[in-house]
Design a binder for these strands. Structure first.
Lengths: 139, 139
DNA sequence: ATACAACATTTGTATATACAAATATATAAC
DNA sequence: GTTATATATTTGTATATACAAATGTTGTAT
C-alpha cells in the first residue's frame, strides 16, 4: 500500500529505539537508567524549584506509578530528595541534590560522547527540515 | 550546543516510541504484544520457509533469549510452530501456523487503522526526504 | 579420534514496565 | 458540616526485558 509511508515510519521507529538503547548502555556505567537520567534532567531544568510527580509526568512518557519508583531509585542513590508539598499534601516536592547535579554532569558527558559522531552528519537546514517533517507527519 | 541536532533527535525518539506504544495498545485486544506481532510478520514474510531464532534476530532488535520466550508465547497460542532443524540440531525451525496467518491479518488491520490518519500527512516526496535524512543522520 | 573453540538456543535472575486497585488529600455540592 | 467527587501518588501484580551463565551441537586443529 503506502510503501513510502511505512519506510519512513520504519526509519523513525528503529532509529528512535536505537538511540535510547545506546544511551541506556552508555549510562549503565554509572548505574543510572535512561528514565532516571531524564528525571534528573527535568529536575535540573526546574532550576531549584521543586517538581511534583505530575510535573515530571508532563515531561516524559511514563506511568505515574513508575515515576514513583524511578524517583525511589534516585532518592536511594541520594541523587534526588523527596518531601511532602507544604501547600498540597497530596503532592510530592522532588528536587535534585548537589550529588545529583554532579552525576548529571557526568551522564551528560557520556551522552554527548555518544552523539558526537552524528552531530555533523546533517546541516542545520537539513535538521530543521527533518524536525518539521516529523512534526507534520503526526500533526 | 547543537540545538537543532537535539531537537531533531528528540522528535525521532518521542515519535518512534509513541508509534510502538500505540501499536502495542492496538494489538492488546488480541492478546498479542508488539514483539510477538513482529515475529509473526517475519515468519509470514519467509513464505513458508522455516526461520531460526537467529533469523528472527537479524530482523528485529531483541536479545536471543527473549526471542525464545516470545516464540514460546506464539507456540502456546498456536500461532507458530517450533521444530528442531533437521540439518543442524542447534537451530530451531520456526514457522507460522494457519491460525497465525489468520491472526496476523486481523492484527495488520488494526495496525493499518492506527496509521490511517497519518498516511497522507506527507507527500511521497516528503516521505522520501524524511527517510533519507534519517538514514544520512546515522550514516 | 579427541580436545577445544565457536555457534545456537535456552534458563536463571534481577530489574523495569503496564495496568488496576488502593490510599490519602483536596475540592465541590447540598 | 457531611458526603461525594476529583486529584495526586503509591502499592500490588503479572508480564517483559536485559544480561550472564548454562546447555547442547557443530566445526576445527592436532
Amino acid at each position: 500500500m503506502n510503501k513510502m509511508y511505512f519506510q519512513a515510519v520504519y526509519e523513525i521507529i528503529t532509529t528512535g529505539h536505537w538511540i535510547t538503547d545506546e544511551v541506556t548502555r552508555a549510562l549503565k556505567e554509572y548505574g543510572v537508567t535512561e528514565p532516571q537520567y531524564n528525571v534528573l534532567r527535568i529536575l535540573k531544568g526546574a532550576k531549584g524549584k521543586p517538581v511534583t510527580v505530575g510535573g515530571i509526568l508532563d515531561n516524559m512518557v511514563q506511568r505515574s506509578s513508575n515515576i514513583t519508583r524511578i524517583v525511589d531509585k534516585l532518592v536511594a542513590k541520594n541523587l534526588a530528595k523527596r518531601t511532602e508539598c507544604p501547600t498540597n499534601r497530596r503532592k510530592m516536592d522532588i528536587v535534585i541534590t548537589p550529588s545529583g547535579v554532579n552525576m548529571l554532569a557526568k551522564l551528560d558527558k557520556k551522552v554527548q560522547a555518544f552523539h558526537k559522531p552524528y552531530f555533523n552528519k546533517l546541516s542545520a537546514e537539513e535538521l530543521t527540515v527533518l524536525k518539521n517533517l516529523i512534526q507534520k507527519l503526526k500533526s
